[in-house]
Each structure stands twice: as C-alpha cells, then as structure tokens.
Design a protein around this nucleic acid. Structure first.
Lengths: 196, 196
DNA sequence: CCTACCGATCGGTAGG
DNA sequence: CCTACCGATCGGTAGG
C-alpha cells in the first residue's frame, strides 16, 4: 500500500512552481494572483497552500534554483584547464542555453528578484555579486595573459551578462534563425566584435 | 492677475511623473501604491487625481516619453552622411547616455511596459518593433558595404540593445570608473570585440 | 488640497 | 481538496 506520490520526479509543488514561473513571467509577480495561478492548475486558490507555504516562497524557489544552476556551472568552468577566452566562451554559451531551456525561470529571476523578501533579497543579491566577481576574475586573467584587450573587466562582464539576458526578446525572431546561430553569432560578437 | 502656473517648465504633473518614475523603478509599477507616491510628494493620495487621470496614465507618460526620445534620435542618425559603423556607434553612445541621464524613466520603460493597458501596450510594442527594424537595416547596410562581418543583423541588434540596457546594473560600480570609460569600453567591445 | 468613503481584490486561514 | 470567510490594501470618487 505504499504511496506512489513522489516516486516519479515531479511533486505537486514542482508543478505549481513551474506554472507559477510561466505566470510570473507573463504578468509580473505582484500582478499575478494566487487565484489565477490556481485556475491555471485546476484547483481552488486555498488548495495551493497544502503544497506551498506562501506566494513569496514560490518566488524564492524559482530565484534560488536559477542562481544555483549558474553557480554550479561556474564551479566547473573554473576547474577547466583552458585559457580565459575559452572559459568566457563556455560561460556565454551556457547562459544562452539556460535562457532557452529555463526561459520562464531565468526571466523571473532576472526581473522579479526585487520582490523577494528579506533575508532572501540580500542573499540573492550577494550570490549574484559573487558570481559576477568570479567572471570578472576570468576576464582579468585574460587581460593579464594578453589574450584580451585592456578593457575594464567590470564593463566587459556587464556587457556580456546584459547581452545574454536580452535573449528573452529573441522569441519573436525564433523562426528566422535557430538557437545555434544565435549562440554562435552572439558569442562571436561579444568576444571578437562586429567589424571584420 | 495672470496665473504663473505653467510658466516655468515644470508643472505639477511633471513633478508627479518624475517621482513616480523613481518609485516604479525601485518597487515595480504594481507594487507601488498611489498612497506611497503621494507620501513621497507630500500630499494625500486623492490630491494626485487633480493632476493625473489614473495610475496607468503615469506609466503611459513615462513609456511614451522614452520611446519618443529614441525615435527622434534615430531620425537624426538616419540622415547622417556616415557609414553604418559610425551610425551604429552613434546609437550605442546615445543609448548609454539615455540610460544615465534618464535612468528611472528608461528603466521603467524597459521593465514595466507589460503593465500598460491596451491600446497603449500594442502601440508601445509596435514602436519598439519599428525602432529595432530601423537599427537592423543599418546593420544590414554595413554587412552589404562589407564593413561588418556577416552576422545575422537581428542578432547583432539584439546583442547591442541588450548590452546597453544592462547599464542599469552599472550603478554599483559607479565609483570604479566614469561614464565615458563605460561608454568607450562598451562601444569598443560591441563593435570590435574583446580579443586583441 | 483634504476628509471620508466605496467596491474590488488580494494573500491567507479555519474547518471539515 | 473545497466552502466560507477575514482583515488589509488597493485605485479611485464625492463633496466641499
């Protein structure tokens, strides 16, 4: 008589979080009501609270899941026996893929983190700061090696991260070119420029 | 006995819009209440409605002011007798300056347009689409001229616009380098790359 | 410009 | 998982 419940990978909480990410992306966190989320799932709003603690908790789950994915990946990149340029390219390509594979979640983490409550807000911002610092160090190494131009590492990282975030606008042009073209061209431009 | 009222350039409505842009940027449009906005200005919430029609109207004012500024500028750029690369550089530098000079307004236009009501939402998105198309045409010309690499023009414009938007994160590093360094380095990277 | 107030909607809980 | 409901807060209006 064992319960099947969480035997498959996908608890009810996961399903709620997934639907919430899509809703929050479309309408924004504050403008999304628990009643609408419940309707998307097919239950009454009050029933959601059997699986989640609060609306805020859903946002936390989404934001920290995304942050964790990026942290784990840069852990791996730092261990690679490659030069800075290769590491940077690796990171850019990973960001492109995350943006495509976990679109709703990454979008929400990028746009709605402001609505996190303390201490989660500070924690999230701190994680992001550390992530950026690690990327900046890679650019610095590249400048020291002589592989990269003497551009302010902060600015280079800012430019890369911003550009990659913008893939959220790419959806509209999906039919004109595929993800691999997007990935290759964006990487090329960010690292080697537009000019011949 | 003429009223002095709007003789100086700065009506009460302008002051409200300015404060609103700052508040909307900090907390998001939906999470900002008219009561808090009123408090920032020093009146009761109901008094705001003597100068503005609705909360939504403020957002419209902000978004279309920003869109208009960008449209007017690209009008000028298209008339220039320069090659595509110079035009592109001109646009990048203008975006950087807009981001710095009208930070709250540009931020709100970039992040909160979703909360616009119809028909303003469609109008705004349409204006943005046209703006992008004009930029894309400039890149296309550059590729045809042979000045630029054969990168998908859509992707190049996406990359540029996204990178420039990211200046909103720059505030944290204000002390480490100035706006001219930001402008120069970002332009350099986007057009000529990071590698030597 | 303020006081007073309205209807709507929100996140969340009690109790079964 | 649902019905029923609560207190809080929202954008906005009436009336002076």
């Amino acid at each position: 008589m064992a319960k099947i419940k969480a035997s498959r990978n996908g608890t009810k909480k996961d399903a709620i979080t997934k639907k919430a990410a899509a809703l929050f992306r479309k309408k924004g966190f504050v403008a999304s009501s628990m009643r609408e989320l419940a309707e998307n799932i097919g239950v009454e709003a009050s029933s959601l609270y059997n699986h989640i603690g609060s609306k805020s908790e859903i946002l936390q789950t989404i934001c920290f899941k995304v942050a964790n994915d990026f942290n784990l990946h840069i852990d791996e990149v730092e261990k690679l026996q490659e030069d800075s340029l290769a590491k940077l390219e690796n990171l850019v390509r990973f960001h492109v893929h995350m943006m495509v594979d976990l679109f709703d979640e990454v979008y929400v983490a990028n746009h709605e983190w402001k609505q996190l409550k303390e201490p989660y807000l500070s924690n999230f911002l701190n994680q992001r700061k550390i992530y950026e610092a690690r990327m900046i160090q890679i650019v610095k190494d590249g400048v020291d090696e002589g592989t990269l131009k003497p551009i302010q590492p902060h600015i280079a990282v800012l430019t890369i991260l911003s550009a990659v975030r913008g893939i959220e606008y790419w959806q509209r042009h999906k039919k004109e070119y595929g993800i691999s073209e997007l990935e290759n061209d964006m990487t090329e431009q960010l690292l080697h420029g537009l000019t011949k």
